[in-house]
Simulated assay, not measured.
Amino acid sequence: MTENLGIPRTIIRPKYESLQVWKTKGFHRKMIKRRFDWGSYHQRSKAETIFSVIKRMLGEDILSRYILTQNREVMYRIIAYNCYRITRNYLVIVGVFYRATRFQ
């Protein structure tokens, strides 16, 4: 039903994986057990990790009052984090090559 509305499915790991489906109670729990996608579940953990890093680096409080400016503030934080990652990776690569060519 939620797929028809355009709402993404939740990716929550089923409890008691060793328990058979017929012993599981509840329609939705049985469906999760039958069609659980482990690949998507691991992608979710990556996304949660990145959100955690952004909150630790740039703060978890939003200062804006209106929804439009709150969304902008979050997007600016994500852009700032991406810029940090790009420059950090660039500096690491340049630093490694600089050290490698310096000692020849």
Rank of each mutant, 00 (worst) to 15 (best):
R99P: 00
Y90S: 12
I79K: 02
S40V: 00
E3N: 07
C83E: 13
I50V: 15
R99K: 10
F103T: 05
I93M: 12
C83A: 08
F103N: 09
N89K: 05
R88H: 10
F51W: 11
Y76G: 04
Y90G: 01
R72A: 03
Y90C: 05
V74G: 00
T69H: 11
V92N: 10
L91E: 13
R13C: 08
L58P: 00
T10R: 11
H28D: 06
M31W: 12
R102E: 09
E17D: 08
K15S: 10
M75I: 14
R44E: 10
R35F: 13
F36Q: 00
F97R: 03
G39D: 11
K15W: 04
K15P: 13
S40T: 00
Y81L: 12
K15Y: 06
W38R: 14
Y98T: 11
R13W: 04
E73N: 01
I62F: 06
G59Q: 03
V53S: 09
E60R: 13
T87A: 10
I11V: 14
E17F: 03
A47S: 05
R65I: 09
Y66H: 12
V74S: 04
A47Y: 08
R13A: 02
Q20M: 04
K25F: 02
M57W: 11
L91C: 14
I93E: 07
I11P: 06
Y84G: 00
Y98S: 10
E48T: 10
R44Q: 10
Q20H: 14
Y76C: 09
V53H: 05
G6N: 08
W38K: 15
I54Y: 09
R77M: 11
E48N: 12
K23P: 01
C83L: 10
W22N: 15
F27V: 15
